[in-house]
Write a protein that binds this DNA or RNA. Sequence first.
DNA 1: AGTGAGATGGCCT
DNA 2: GGCCATCTCACTA
Length: 193
Amino acid sequence: MKILPQDFYFEDTITVAKSLLGKTLHIKTTGSVHQARIVEVEAYLGIKDPACHTFEGRRTPRTSSMYLSGGHSYVYQIYGMYFCLNVVTRSEQHPEAVLIRALEPLPLAAKFEKSQLVSNGPGKLCRHYEINKDHNGLQMWRKQSALCISDSGFKVTTSQIIERPRIGVDYAGDAALWPLRFYLADNKFVSRK
DNA sequence: AGTGAGATGGCCT
DNA sequence: GGCCATCTCACTA
């Protein structure tokens, strides 16, 4: 299994976001290892992005891991009951990240069942895979981390990537319209059509 | 199908 | 005190 090296995450955030589509997320929980394909992401562009937690250089305890180098995880709690998983991009001087919005569980069962729609949303996937505050600030380029990402050879072409405005950021004015949500066309596990 | 509200609590001002 | 990068269920039609 080819773990993505840390410098994979040093590129510009939109490039990393698109490149993460089709990659495999490995989640180690107590006793078991899960794998899932990344099928939907969103880019958050740091200090000049009103939708981003680090807009205008905001730096708080919650967002401190966004100021780590690319390849670290950034997990935060939202609405008191959900967690969201991000992968930090670029360098310490550029607190940007990619939100993982949906996963396709692997291996895929022979028959698609609705009950398997457990990871088609940023909060749902963290709930299902038990990703929480303990998974904040991990080095995702190391295979011994509880979270890491590999390239399993799944091919994604540019024409398969749908670009849409991000979800749930209406407070961000114009930025709410920026096409920074990316997902795989025709994938059943994407959070919304 | 589409809309609206409630759950629920840490974080930031 | 108010805001949330969400999810689910109830209700309308």
